[in-house]
């Protein structure tokens, strides 16, 4: 049974496809520690003389963000499934009318 309208389900489809592609790629970039994304990790504080700890913290942030990106991508995969089902249900109901 269609819950969302045809436009909302189409919107969900597009955003989830976009989200899956971009977030999965960003996850990979975080995983390999891309420098361009260094500004977009949870704050890591630098204490005088404790450089190793700072590096470890930054690495942890990179890994954490990689997983977070993949989690979000997974959530978008679910959204994609729901939207696709809704889209299909809408198409079917509009055809049968």
């Amino acid at each position: 049974m269609p819950v969302c309208g045809p436009k909302l389900s189409l919107c969900g489809l597009i955003i989830s496809v976009w989200g899956i592609v971009q977030l999965a790629l960003m996850g990979v970039f975080y995983y390999i520690g891309a420098v361009a994304l260094a500004e977009d990790i949870p704050e890591a504080e630098y204490h005088e003389g404790k450089l190793q700890e700072f590096y470890a913290e930054v690495d942890k942030g990179f890994k954490q963000n990689a997983y977070n990106c993949w989690i979000a991508a997974l959530l978008y995969l679910i959204t994609l499934a729901i939207s696709a089902h809704q889209f299909w249900a809408n198409n079917r109901s509009s055809l049968s009318v």
Binding site: L37, D40, A72
Partner: peptide
Amino acid sequence: LKVDGWAGGI
């Protein structure tokens, strides 16, 4: 992206 921990995914 700056949200720390696993809540960051959501």
